[in-house]
């Protein structure tokens, strides 16, 4: 009896779908924000919006195609020895299913191009600028007292650094609500400066001057790590950033300066 057989298949598919939905629902609270960690910068927010837009199109395409596939598998199972009609193709259809993806692709490209242009804007000349040195296997964050960003005290001279080790992960501090530039340097191998909450990473390449800018929009402490294989302790190149209000940042800087050990005079 083919009809009950078909019913059984449909019931099975239903069961599979509900199981899948249940599985997705059960893990979804851990992945609010459409799978991405919380964006903590203006740039990260833009990237997350692009991610969500792309994801919606991707999921729609996935269900449309996977649905058509499942439908074909169930609907066109062999029922008799009669040969199916031997269709060899259709130029009209080929044009349709070439054109539609091209349109989707152009849309996605245009949107990602706009976001790319925005997140790669250069830093204003008076922005806080931090030199990030990646080395095997930790990070050094160097602040220039003459480039401490908006609202800073009259220009001072000198620098101070936060230096980490694989065992003692470094924590650096940035103020919320203003642009911060990172200048990435390496003298050994390629590293990659990656902070998931920035939704951003940039490689730290020997011989290259790579920079990027973020504007943090909330305070808190966040963790990042090296994202480019750099040797035996690659997994231990973690670092932390503390995003604080400007006043707290200034206090922290004053403390660092007071602690002469970490200040290097020019």
């Amino acid at each position: 009896m083919p009809s009950t057989g078909k019913l059984r298949v449909i019931r099975r598919v239903n069961l599979l779908i509900s199981a899948a939905l249940l599985a997705i629902a059960s893990i979804s609270p851990a992945f609010a924000g459409w799978g991405m960690p919380e964006p903590i910068t203006d740039q990260a927010k833009r990237i997350q919006d692009l991610w969500v837009f792309t994801l919606i199109i991707a999921v729609a395409v996935f269900f449309a195609v996977e649905g058509a596939l499942l439908y074909a598998i169930i609907r066109y199972r062999k029922k008799s020895d009669a040969l199916p009609k031997q269709t060899h193709g259709s130029t009209a259809l080929e044009i349709v299913w070439t054109t539609i993806p091209v349109l989707i692709v152009i849309t996605l490209f245009s949107y990602s191009f706009i976001v790319l242009r925005d997140v790669e804007k250069k830093a204003p000349s008076d922005a806080l600028s931090i030199e990030v040195d990646g080395f095997q296997f930790s990070w050094q964050f160097t602040y220039d007292l003459a480039r401490l960003g908006q609202g800073q005290a009259p220009a001072q001279e000198g620098t101070f650094s936060i230096i980490g080790t694989a065992a003692n992960e470094p924590t650096f501090v940035i103020p919320v609500g203003e642009p911060v530039e990172f200048r990435l340097k390496s003298n050994d191998v390629i590293h990659s400066f990656y902070l998931p909450n920035f939704h951003y990473k940039l490689d730290v390449v020997p011989g290259r001057d790579n920079r990027f800018v973020i504007t943090a929009n909330q305070t808190g402490e966040f963790t990042g790590q090296c994202a480019e294989l750099c040797g035996i302790n690659h997994a231990l190149m973690r670092f932390h950033v503390r995003v604080v209000e400007r006043a707290e940042f200034d206090t922290w800087v004053a403390e660092q300066v007071a602690n002469k050990a970490t200040v290097r005079q020019p």
């Binding site: 991405m36 692009l50 991707a58 490209f109 990602s112 976001v115 997140v119 998931p196 951003y200 990473k201």
Partner: peptide, 14 residues
């Protein structure tokens, strides 16, 4: 295709 959207690739690359 997510990696083709360059800013998304900044997040998911590596």
């Amino acid at each position: 295709t997510f990696s083709a959207a360059v800013p998304v690739d900044f997040a998911i690359h590596d």
